[in-house]
Amino acid sequence: MARTDANPPMPEWSTEYQLVEVDADYLGKAVKPKQFIHIDQSECIMCEGCVDICPWKCIHMVTPDAVAEAQGTELPGEDPSDNVIFIIDDDVCTRCALCVDRCPTGVIILGKAGAPSPDGDSHTRTNNHGYGYGMRL
């Protein structure tokens, strides 16, 4: 099968990240599609389902020591209870939301960067709103 290897190339990853906190405005200028994947860590069970399902190989679970330095924000790994971090390549991600669909605990959401509305997050998945196994509900 190697001859017809049509797999998308692996995005480049680093093990010496410089972490910087930016605001929504910056992110909006840097990346074209205006929706962003977000993971709520409190219910993440680290099953790596999103890493497995991603057709573009753009989301990965790595150890916190992949981040070498942090500016203006807490360095992951400083807190001994920091176990793993998730990194996404926003230029490669197509927002296909397969990971949203795959997540068994439903903690991955596709939302807009910025302050959430006072009524709560409108992107939370419910029985008749969100993504369900390849279909937009």
Binding site: N7, D52, I53, C54, P55, W56, L98, R102, G134
Partner: peptide
């Protein structure tokens, strides 16, 4: 690539094989 993910994700083989 997206359909390749779907083939496994939406098939009973997903019980046996991961997508990648």
């Amino acid at each position: 690539p997206r359909n390749r993910s779907y083939v496994i994700m939406n098939s009973v083989l997903y019980h046996l094989h991961p997508v990648k």
